[in-house]
Amino acid sequence: MMGGLQSALAEASSPSWRQRARAGRVLASFADVPEAAEVLMGLLMDAEDTSVTRQTAEALARVGMAAAVRLIALAVVEADGSRADWLQTGVHDALVGPFGAPDVAAACGKLAQDQEEAVRRGAAEISAWLDGTSC
């Protein structure tokens, strides 16, 4: 399993957007590992391809744990309008997918109490995306 983590960490700096997006999907399940979280933030804010942003946000939303949604929340606060739209699209894709992302709302509830104001603001924004589900 750690081999997959190391491989995905290396792939995250690839010049290929497809490889970076794949890295985001793999790393999402490691969102609670500090090294992976740092790389995931970079992928959420990928300057070269918004598909990397969208697919990474979708993967993190599907994971649904607070550590994963926290990264999306931080990215939302940091993002410009266009990037925020792609983050929202990724979360939406997870919610409407075949398995949904039922834990996102619960994670927002936990993050609403986070010590960091940026996390609380981002969680509130994600909550607004959930069409009436409040955190």
Rank of each mutant, 00 (worst) to 15 (best):
L60I: 08
S51C: 08
D93S: 15
L71R: 01
H92G: 09
V63A: 10
T53D: 04
R83G: 11
A59V: 05
Q88I: 07
D85T: 13
M45T: 01
E58R: 15
A67K: 01
D80E: 11
V77M: 10
L74S: 04
A79N: 11
T50D: 07
E78N: 08
V76A: 09
L87V: 06
V91C: 12
A75M: 04
Q55H: 13
M65L: 15
W86T: 10
V77T: 04
I72H: 03
M65T: 11
L44I: 02
V63S: 06
G90I: 08
V69A: 05
R54F: 06
T53S: 02
A47R: 09
W86S: 12
L60H: 06
A73W: 13
Q88E: 13
A79W: 09
A84R: 15
I72Q: 06
R54A: 13
A84E: 15
D85F: 13
R83P: 11
V63C: 04
D49N: 14
A47P: 02
D80V: 08
A67V: 02
T56H: 07
V52A: 03
V91A: 12
M65V: 15
Q55W: 15
Q55D: 14
D49Q: 07
L44P: 00
G64V: 03
A57P: 04
A59N: 02
Q55L: 15
L87E: 12
D46F: 00
A67T: 00
H92V: 13
L74F: 10
Q88V: 09
T53A: 05
D49H: 10
A79H: 11
R62A: 14
R62N: 05
E48D: 10
M65W: 11
V91S: 10
R54V: 12
A66Y: 11
E78H: 10
A73D: 01
L44S: 00
L44N: 01
V52N: 05
H92E: 12
R62G: 05
T56L: 09
V76E: 08
R83Y: 11
A61Y: 01
T50K: 02
T56D: 08
D93L: 15
H92P: 01
D46C: 00
A57Q: 09
A75E: 07
A68G: 02
A59Y: 00
L44V: 00
A75W: 06
V63W: 04
A68W: 01
T50R: 07
E48G: 04
R70D: 03
R70C: 06
M45C: 01
E58G: 07
T50A: 05
D85K: 12
D85I: 07
L44E: 01
H92F: 13
A79V: 05
